[in-house]
Design a protein around this nucleic acid. Structure first.
Lengths: 107, 107
DNA sequence: TTTTATTATCGTAATATTGCGATATATAAA
DNA sequence: TTTATATATCGCAATATTACGATAATAAAA
């Protein structure tokens, strides 16, 4: 127990859930919001901006990268993290698909 | 540690994350999808349909109720769980708001 | 080359989540 | 009232997540 029974759900359900799950942390929401307000690429402004340790921010960035929402490029000795707008729109579409196909039923 | 530092984020960020988090489990996705395909109210068809123990399903239903996505009505000796369509649309809007205000920045 | 700055990864502690059996609760049926 | 059925809650075990310090890795600067 304690482990999610991934195998009893289909691929789409697991993918959708995984996507929601990764967005389901305030630090990751804050990271995405902060990155999107910057004109230029940002890196570890996030550590100061958000107030979590560098290791923690790095971990959250890794998770956002894992679903493709962020892409990182080496920029000198620091990293430039950016929103991948194509993936972003793709995920928004996926998510709206879920919302639009799930409908009122009764009551 | 291990605890999310809720206090360093604002109310909207925490709410949005909480909403995403609750949708971030395949069983809860499956529950919502199944309920929406039923013409009439369903109850513990879910236990058979989804393949998790009754106690587990009940717990997931509770979480979906906590963000207002489901409402439950007593129907004889069983429970009728339904999607709250107003709340549903409200959350979809909230979520799209997040997606639309977070934009491409660089790269 | 040495130093400095930035980011990633490892290891670990604290807490949260998932899942289930057992049990409590409530209502319908007998 | 007794029995059967449906759901909620409790308590626990297993696993996952969150957070961070320490350290490794990398690249610019001195």
């Amino acid at each position: 127990m304690g482990i999610t029974k991934t195998q009893i759900f289909d691929k789409k359900q697991n993918e959708l859930a995984q996507f929601f799950k990764i967005l389901g942390h305030p630090a990751r929401i804050a990271i995405l919001q902060h990155i999107s307000t910057q004109n230029s690429c940002i890196c570890n402004d996030l550590v100061e901006e958000i107030g979590l340790a560098q290791a923690t921010i790095s971990q959250h960035l890794k998770e956002l990268k894992s679903i493709g929402l962020l892409k990182g490029e080496i920029e000198g000795k620091s990293m430039c993290y950016c929103i991948d707008i194509d993936r972003w729109k793709e995920l928004q579409k996926l998510l709206n698909g879920f919302f639009n196909t799930t409908k009122e039923n009764c009551c």
